[in-house]
Amino acid sequence: MSVNERETRASSLPDPFVPIRRSLRERIGRPKVSVVLSVVWLLIVIAWAIIPQAFTPLDPIAGNAAQAQQPPSLEHLFGTDATGRDMFTRVVYGSINSLSGALIAVSVGFVIGTAIGVIAGSSRRILDDILMRIVDVFLAIPSLLLSLSIIILLGFGTAQAAIAVGFTSVAAFARLSRSEVVRVRGSDYVEAAFASGGRFPVVLWRHVLPNSLTAVLALAALQFGTAVLSISTLGFLGYGAPPPTPEWGLMIAEGRNYIATAWWLTTLPGAVVVLVVLAANRVSAAIAAKGRIS
């Protein structure tokens, strides 16, 4: 009289109590085309940042005056600017600024925000209240103004802009990680772990954190896209890298002067920004969806 005989039901209705034995591949499901494309595109942009010379033989800073203001062609995919610099080369070399900036920003937000959120979510009422009120204050200041205030303090530059952007996401990370910790803490399996004699730090490490993490990771991917946007905005306003650094926002700002004659100087770098942000957001959504399934 085996257990399986007793309990297995042949029905394959989507019923939570029917044994589900699926391979990893089945559980993740066939990856969606848009997710695959997003990942591939992000990998390409990362490759630009690491080995730009593999993608273009030209120099991002030194221009060839003879070839100034050329529209996109096979030779110059994104055209050339007023000093004859190849725009595609500048976009490729610019990715390191945007990506490393976004990485710094997300790290700042993730580390500080998640630390605050986890502490708030796992501590008693008073500390929780104090920490979350502090977070509320950061939320009350519009994010661009907050990053501008920090930039005034730190000065202009890529790293400074990145840190400033990072601080604006602290509140989002703190709120999400707190609510995730609170959600997981309220679950029966965490109570069961305490009932099994678990001490608080052990239960936090073994059960609460692993189960809270997926949503926070999804937010990190989302914030990566947002950070790319914000950093390029600060670059556009002139608070990021100084010229002639090939920074995406700055390039668009420089291209504005030729808006009537050379559309490609602004349109194409901007399109690259849009695609990077789109891809990061798509990956974020995929992570979040996977978290909900498993």
Binding site: Y189, A192, R206, H207, N211, S294
Partner: peptide
Amino acid sequence: YQNPFGSLDPRQ
């Protein structure tokens, strides 16, 4: 517990 799904850590 009542709900055997909620009382077991899904990741373990």
